[in-house]
Amino acid sequence: MSATEKSALSRRWDTRRVLMAVLGLQLGMALFLAGRDVIGAVPQLVWPSPQPQLTTPVAPGDQTRRYAPRDTPLREMPDRPWRNTGDMPQRLSFERVDDVLHLTGAIEVGDAARFAEALTRESGLTAVQLSSPGGSVHDALEIGRSLRAAGLDTVMAAQDVCFSACPYILASGVARHVDHDAAVGVHQHYFGQSTVLPAFLAVEDIQRGQGEVMTYLDAMGVDTLVMQHALATPPDEIYVLLREELLDYRLATEVID
């Protein structure tokens, strides 16, 4: 092998070592950031939220409650079959009563398409009644857009709950009637396909999702400042909006006594 060939081979090996070093540094940084995210999440896993249960009445300045979408106690109501969010349907159920379509249960991926199909089957509807612990943000937004396009109102009766992604459906009603004894709450939620992505990998999805939500709320005539409460409330808690907030943010057009 000539001196020139040896020199070229040496340069290639030097370049490869540099690339490997850069790759190793990037991998190390990724592992460090991922480990930091996991360590940061440990306190929430070991020590759950210290907030009171959802069944504890809220008051101004005391509106945050412990929350698990599949395991949150609800206040008992004689004519309601569920006493816990886990008792509710695991995906939205659609039941028509007179001219009102009742949407009950968790919002799962694919429920927006099911709702669109339900609208094509049902004629003469005037409103949608909601009771849901939340779920898929994307599907909630799509349901809301379909609901507004159909010119329907949204309704919540006494003891109905609308948490997490559900308020986006509530926001889509042409008129939004909420009983004073219903509960509407917001918190942080995930926008990507995975709910276990480290924060440094999920930032792009989060920013895109928040932008879409704020654009959607503005189009529905809701004050986007309601999102300040969502962004400040961790996923294992829920911020329950007071009557005055529902009206001030225009999430409700009427609170019924």
Rank of each mutant, 00 (worst) to 15 (best):
G28P: 05
M29V: 13
L31R: 11
F32K: 11
L33M: 11
A34Y: 09
A34T: 15
G35Y: 12
R36I: 02
R36P: 05
D37T: 14
I39K: 10
A41W: 12
A41N: 15
V42M: 13
P43S: 09
P43E: 03
Q44L: 10
Q44D: 13
Q44W: 13
W47M: 14
S49R: 08
P50N: 09
Q51P: 00
Q53M: 00
Q53L: 05
Q53T: 02
L54M: 13
L54V: 03
T55A: 03
T55L: 03
T55Q: 08
T56V: 15
T56E: 04
P57R: 03
P57M: 01
A59C: 00
G61T: 03
Q63S: 05
Q63L: 02
T64Q: 05
T64R: 13
R66Q: 04
Y67Q: 00
Y67C: 01
Y67I: 03
D71L: 07
D71Y: 06
D71F: 05
D71G: 07
T72V: 06
L74A: 03
E76W: 07
E76F: 06
M77W: 12
M77C: 12
P78K: 09
P78F: 04
D79K: 13
D79F: 12
D79H: 14
R80Q: 11
P81A: 08
P81G: 01
P81C: 06
P81F: 10
W82V: 08
W82F: 14
R83D: 02
N84F: 01
N84L: 02
T85N: 07
G86P: 06
G86Y: 08
G86H: 08
